[in-house]
Each structure stands twice: as structure tokens, then as C-alpha cells.
Computed example of a mutant assay.
Amino acid sequence: MSSWGALLRRGHLGTEADRATFRTLHTALLASPPLRQGLNPASAERSLKHLRTLLGAPAVAMTDTTRLLAWEGGRAHHSRQPAVIAAATLGHGRTTVVDGADIACDEPSCVVRHAIVAPLDIEEKVVGTLQVFTDQASAGLVRATNEVARWVSGQLELAELDASRTRLMEAEVRALRAQISPHFIYNSLTAIASFTRTDPERARELLLDLAEFTRYSFRKHGEFTTLAEELRSIEAYLVIEKARFGDRLTVTLRVAPEVLPVVVPFLCLQPIVENAVRHGLERKPGDGEITILAQDADRECVVTIEDNGVGEDPERLRQVLGGDPSSDSVGLANVDERLRATFGDDYGLVIETAQGAGTKVTVRLPKFRPGVHA
């Protein structure tokens, strides 16, 4: 496949105006990734060299509300001025042109005579400035600086949305831990206590399983994990539940080795399994069965979690997935939302159930998704 550079050399992009448009878009594309990391010294330094190219200015600077973040273009004797001349724009939120004593210097050869200071804002709040230092602040350059500043603001807003999404998902995981853990730990300790005198070795092994479960559930780092790690925690959980249920509970777990490295949102399957036990089997007289299958499906992994419990009214289930706060179902809405937020709406939970007929939950997971790493 021909590179864009080769296409440009062969004239495939048409007129000079077409080629200039391409160069502008390409330069903006280079500036975008660092800006998507938010407003900080590192992102400002990495993006400014491309923004200076866009504006064709001798020097450019970026500030937050209190300090210079980065300077690009030499003429470092002016780099003490951006934090000072930003004050007016930070105050009223409009672009200003500064000249005279505010940007004066003692260098006879310096071409800088004006500075254009444009606001950077996120959700209508000024968070910094983009500054262009130039010999002549023409109307065209002022307009160009305004437009570039608006584009930079858009990238910073996207960065803030990404950060907000991450904070939200972290809060949802914390809420999920708070909802699951007390119930399970209480039942676990009760089951382990029943073996301390009659079967101390089994009590010790169950304590190790509980330690494995809590180690995983309360880990502090990482929005994502592997399917192998998630299933290992589920196995520890089910060993303890089998001790509590005794012969009443049968567990079948079949996993294709190819899907073990698949990356999944942290705690995306464990709540489904706990929901099957807590709401499907605890209320069911007689024996209970849980079957967990993880299958290779070309570019996807398909996980099914099925129980033969009491089932659920489909209408009630729709309310649960809609986030009904009165529901005590463990985390199904939480899991559904996080799957959709991570992989898209095509990857939410698919639940088949009816009262008295058990429940089957299907989770489809892409084997690879850019930006999703354990």
C-alpha cells in the first residue's frame, strides 16, 4: 500500500490547496494523542511543536491557570512572560493581543513584538491558555490562533471525558465490592467454622481459597484482567460455596485454552456467578447445578453461565438491568454497563430466564480491542 507521503509526491491529492489541507490535518493528528492525556507539562511539550507548525509562528507557549506548562520555538528569554500575560484571558475568557512593555526584551535580533493569548476551556471553564509569539499579530493569525485553541479545547474535553469514564468505572467496581463481599465473606466464614473441629485440613484449604478470592477482589490496580484470572477467582468462590451447599451443588467448568488470555473488565463474571448462587440456587429446594463454559468463537470469546435455579421474571430482570435501586440482584446492571462502556453496546449481557426455569447468561467478549489491556 502506498504511503501518504508517496501519494503527495505523485500529486494524488490534487491541487496545492488539497495538499495544504492534508498537511494541516496530518499535523493536527500528530498533536492529538498527547492532548488526549489532559493538560499537563508532558502533554503540552509534546503537542506544542505540532501546534507551532500549524500556526507558523516563531514561538508558542501553553499555560494552565497558574504556570507555564511548555514553551516551543527558541527565544527562551520570553518564556518568563506567558504566566504573567495569561492573567487577562484567564479572567475574562477572551482572546487578547499583548504588545509593548509586557513582552519587551533586550535582544536586538528578536522578532517577537506581539503575543496572542487564546483561552483553553473545558465545559465552558477556562483551564489555561495557548499563546503565540510573533512579529505581527495580523487578523488572520488571531483567527487561526482562536481556531487552534478551540480545537485544543475539544481534545482536552475528550481527555476529561476519558478520565471521568475511568473514575466512574472505578467507582462502580468499588460499589460492586461493597455489595458482594460482606454477604459472601459472612457465609464463607460460617462454612469454614463448621469444619474447624470435624475436618481441620479442609478448613485450612477453604481459608486459602477465601484468601485467594479476597486477594483478587480487593486488588487496587487495574481496570482490566484476564479471563484466566477472573475464572481462578470464580473457582475459589465456588469451592467455598460447595462446602456450604455440600452435595446439593454441582459445578461444571469447561474452558477452551485459547481464550484464557482474553482481556476482560475486572469483576465482570464473578458477580454473575454469585447472582446465580444467591438468587438462583439458595431459594431452590433440592440439588443445584451451575455450568460455566468459555468457548473460542473466531474473533470472539463466548462465556455462558447457566444455573437450574428458581429463575426470574423477565420483566423484573429488565428493571434490574435498567438500574432499579430497589433490586438486590448482585451487580448485573453494573456488569452490563461496564461491558457496554468497554466494548460497545453489542457486548452487553444476554440473559435467558423464566420463573422456575433457571437462568442462562451469555457474555460475548472480543479477543482484542485497542486500548483494553490487562
Rank of each mutant, 00 (worst) to 15 (best):
P325S: 03
D346R: 09
A354P: 00
G286D: 10
V335L: 07
G331R: 01
C301Q: 10
I305E: 01
G348C: 02
R278Y: 02
R283Y: 10
R318D: 13
R278H: 01
V302M: 09
E282M: 15
A297P: 02
G358V: 13
G309C: 14
F343D: 06
E312G: 11
K284A: 06
E306T: 15
N275P: 00
P314D: 00
E352P: 04
Q355T: 10
G309A: 15
K360L: 15
Q319T: 13
P285I: 14
D328Q: 05
L317P: 11
A341I: 12
V310W: 06
L281W: 07
Y347C: 14
R316C: 07
S329K: 05
E312L: 10
N275A: 01
I305R: 05
F343C: 09
I292M: 05
V320R: 03
D336K: 13
A357W: 02
T362V: 08
G348K: 07
R278S: 02
T304C: 00
G331W: 03
S327Q: 03
N275I: 01
T353W: 07
T342M: 15
S327N: 04
E289A: 10
G348Y: 11
G322D: 15
S327H: 05
S326K: 09
R283V: 02
R278K: 07
P285M: 13
I305N: 01
T359G: 06
R318P: 06
V361K: 10
G322V: 10
R316K: 06
K360E: 04
E312N: 14
V310R: 11
V335F: 09
V335T: 13
D307G: 02
Q295C: 07
Y347I: 12
G311F: 12
L339E: 08
V302E: 11
D345I: 05
T353V: 11
T291C: 06
A294Y: 04
R338T: 11
R283Q: 08
T362R: 04
V361T: 15
A276M: 01
G322W: 11
D324I: 08
A357G: 01
D307H: 01
H279W: 03
L317D: 02
L349S: 03
N334T: 15
E306L: 10
A354Y: 00
C301V: 14
V320D: 09
P285C: 09
D287V: 03
E300V: 02
L321G: 04
A341W: 13
D328E: 00
A297E: 02
I290M: 00
T353N: 02
T291K: 12
S329F: 05
A297M: 00
